[in-house]
């Protein structure tokens, strides 16, 4: 296999990884601060993508579409937090799983009702279309490279937010002891709404960004949601650093597994059997990775809570 192909796959893995991180960051914050499992995070991803596709269709501006995705997802996130999610913080995980499963049903069918069952398309803007030549003669799509850059910038911004700002201090304090922080005069329910809306906005942004390289359709959020869960579980729930490392690990495993495993099996098997076994294993690779990590470390790589 040529080095150029391999380098391209590594970049693809990185791109998948950083987008998973943007999804997973919100999930892991919400779990870390509020102790809530939110299955409906994938719906916010979908809402972002649909808002972007609708606005891009109406105005033709990709930047406006991204802003629409961010604000629509944040608004829906804040609304859902106030109406439903808030009642779930002191419930057990089973109730949280079911209530947010119910939210998925409502959001998916609601979106289907408004936009219909046919996929929408969100086009890559002309100034980001086409390939660029990287050092080493690798031709790589500019848009995917932009996604990697945006993802890494969001990661940097989140680390800054959590470690250097007042809101970040409150979030970290909320993770440690929510009664104490309330006693110190922080409006805890406002903090929760802000954290939830922040996570929702990130999910919506990821939906819009990824929506431009795949089709925008109902149900697009769930596969990503499950991958994001794999990410936060591998990274350790509540840890942003863990989420970043695990996201890139998952992205690379998924992308490289699809290329390398069939090639590996071809070394000692006939071609068609190697392809079928290799690709079956590759599609399971990240789940195997997750199982192995959890068996080795039952609370993930950077997880503190039991």
């Amino acid at each position: 296999m040529s080095m150029i192909l391999l380098a391209e796959q590594v970049l693809n893995g990185l791109q998948l990884g950083v987008m998973l991180f943007v999804m997973a960051a919100g999930l892991t914050l919400v779990f870390g601060v509020m102790g809530l499992i939110n299955l409906a995070h994938g719906s916010l991803f979908m809402i972002g993508a649909f808002a972007a596709a609708a606005v891009a269709g109406a105005t033709g501006s990709f930047l406006l579409a991204l802003i629409a995705a961010l604000s629509a997802a944040a608004a829906v996130g804040a609304l859902v937090e106030v109406v439903v999610i808030r009642r779930l913080y002191d419930r057990d995980h089973l109730d949280q799983v079911l209530a947010t499963f119910a939210l998925i049903l409502i959001f998916s069918e609601g979106t289907r009702w408004i936009f219909g069952s046919f996929p929408l398309f969100l086009n890559i803007p002309p100034y980001l279309a086409g390939p660029v030549t990287l050092p080493g003669g690798i031709e790589y799509p500019l848009y995917r490279l932009t996604l990697i850059t945006i993802g890494l910038s969001i990661a940097a911004a989140l680390f800054w937010l959590i470690n250097r700002t007042r809101l970040g201090i409150q979030i970290r304090a909320g993770e440690n002891d929510r009664e104490m922080i309330a006693a110190l005069g922080v409006d805890i329910s406002k903090l929760y709404t802000i954290v939830f809306a922040l996570g929702a906005a990130l999910a919506g942004l990821a939906g819009a960004l990824v929506g431009a390289i795949q089709s925008v359709q109902v149900g697009m959020g769930e596969p990503v949601l499950i991958l994001a869960f794999v990410v936060i579980v591998i990274g350790g729930i509540g840890s942003i650093k863990g989420a970043l490392i695990a996201a890139i690990l998952v992205g690379l495993t998924d992308t490289l597994g699809g290329v390398l495993l069939p090639a590996l099996f071809k070394q000692f098997m006939e071609a068609s059997a190697a392809t079928s076994i290799g690709s079956s294993l590759a599609s399971m690779a990240i789940y195997i990775l997750m199982a192995v990590v959890l068996i080795w470390r039952p609370t993930g790589l950077f997880g503190a809570r039991a």
């Binding site: 779990f31 499992i37 995980h93 799983v97 499950i226 869960f229 794999v230 579980v233 729930i237 079956s280 599609s283 399971m284 789940y287 195997i288 997750m290 199982a291 959890l294 068996i295 039952p298 609370t299 993930g300 039991a306």
Partner: peptide, 22 residues
Amino acid sequence: LRTSGVYFIMITLAFGQMLYFF
């Protein structure tokens, strides 16, 4: 069962998905 709580929910989900993709 080596894990518990939310990790148990997620690992069972992962095993289900593993068989689904298989």
